[in-house]
């Protein structure tokens, strides 16, 4: 049970974070960018849970649960904003959403 050392978790978490970051930076569609953000959040959650596993109180796990809830709320709001943007601009492509450009 205790055969899996902490480093493995952390490496997995770093991998998740990097793939999320990559998605955020290179995907054209806003939905995929949101998915990337979810990945990065979950990488952080994984970190919290992993550290909690090696420290016998439950603080980290509770924090992770909070984070999941906040992420769900965030996803709901982000998606609804995205829906409205799509209605207004008739596109969810980030390159088209450039009205703030000078």
């Amino acid at each position: 049970m205790s055969a899996i050392p902490l480093t493995y978790y952390l490496v997995l978490s770093a991998f998740l974070l990097c793939s999320g970051l990559l998605m955020v930076l290179i995907k054209k569609n806003a939905v995929f960018v949101l998915l990337g953000i979810e990945l990065m959040l979950n990488a952080a959650n994984l970190n919290l849970v992993a550290f909690s596993k090696f420290n016998p109180n439950l603080d980290g796990q509770i924090f992770a649960v909070f984070s999941v809830v906040v992420a769900a709320a965030e996803a709901a709001i982000a998606l609804s904003i995205l829906l409205n943007i799509y209605k207004k601009f008739d596109s969810s492509d980030l390159d088209d959403l450039n009205t703030m450009e000078y």
């Binding site: 970051l21 930076l25 960018v33 450039n98 000078y102």
Partner: peptide, 17 residues
């Protein structure tokens, strides 16, 4: 410097990173 302020969010995120 205007290149930084391209208005494209992903470019700005790259710079942020």
């Amino acid at each position: 410097l205007t290149g930084i302020q391209s208005g494209k969010i992903q470019n700005q995120l790259v710079w942020l990173l």
